[in-house]
Write a protein that binds this DNA or RNA. Structure first.
Lengths: 135, 135
DNA sequence: ATATGTGCAAATCCTTTGCATAGAA
DNA sequence: TTCTATGCAAAGGATTTGCACATAT
């Protein structure tokens, strides 16, 4: 799936992100399909594609995107951050051996009961990782 | 709540951990009650208590405990690892502002529907974080 | 013009490692 | 003894930061 640049520009603007060349390239890469990438992977792919971009800009951009809701940052294992192009509510399978993540559509998980938030608090999000092991 | 040293020695042995002085002190601290501590917090508390112990030993011990199932390691935010003295199945609330974790008893969450694992895979664990924000 | 983004290298923070010494079986 | 654990300092890896330069409005 390919996202038209015009769409990307609009999308970034809508989220309050100034669309620069670097940001558009990162957005194009990440938002092309639902996927999970690390900062390192993004940096490598952009450079392989002939782009001149710094590690700092990749991190700045990913953090900005996550803060603005363009993408979602996942804390999977503490080793490194994963950036998820899918910002809709959903959950994840994780292969504990490879670390690979797979999206779970929200309707694949249904909660029969969830605790009420403590007084003075409200839900800010539900993070669900189902760890998988090879049989 | 205080855990008798004898109990601790048995507990470590049962999990295949050689009970040394440092390991017993860390176990005593962590297993005293259901709680979540970082390596740094454990190091500080032990030293405040007058113990001479190195950072390396704290990390070695916590990793060993986690591998042997004495405690559980949590990847909450990617900043640092949290060590959970509660090894029973359970879930967590997390205050997104302070990072503080609270245990959720397993019966407070009930799944109406969960996806079957992909072919050749089986469940290895279910990690659920409910992020909370101040109203 | 003025504010904001980018690149580079150095700095930071958490965690692991190498190796010599100390302790357990 | 022989094996394993501990302490220390240094190494490692991911991420952030300071600052000069470039780019956007």
């Amino acid at each position: 799936m390919h996202v038209r640049p015009v769409t990307l520009v609009e999308r970034l603007k809508k989220n309050g992100v100034l669309p620069t060349a670097q940001r558009l390239r990162i957005a194009a890469l990440l938002l092309a399909s639902p996927q999970h990438l690390t900062a390192e992977q993004i940096l490598c792919r952009l450079r392989e594609g002939g782009m001149r971009i710094s590690k700092a800009t990749v991190y700045n951009t990913l953090n900005l995107f996550a803060a603005k809701g363009v993408i979602r940052q996942l804390a999977v294992d503490g080793d490194r951050a994963w950036f998820d192009s899918n910002t809709e509510p959903h959950y994840h399978f994780q292969d504990i051996e490879t670390g690979a993540l797979t999206d779970l559509a929200p309707q694949e998980v249904r909660f029969d009961r969830l605790p009420s938030p403590p007084p003075g608090m409200e839900y800010a999000g539900v993070e669900l990782f189902i760890r998988l092991r090879r049989v």
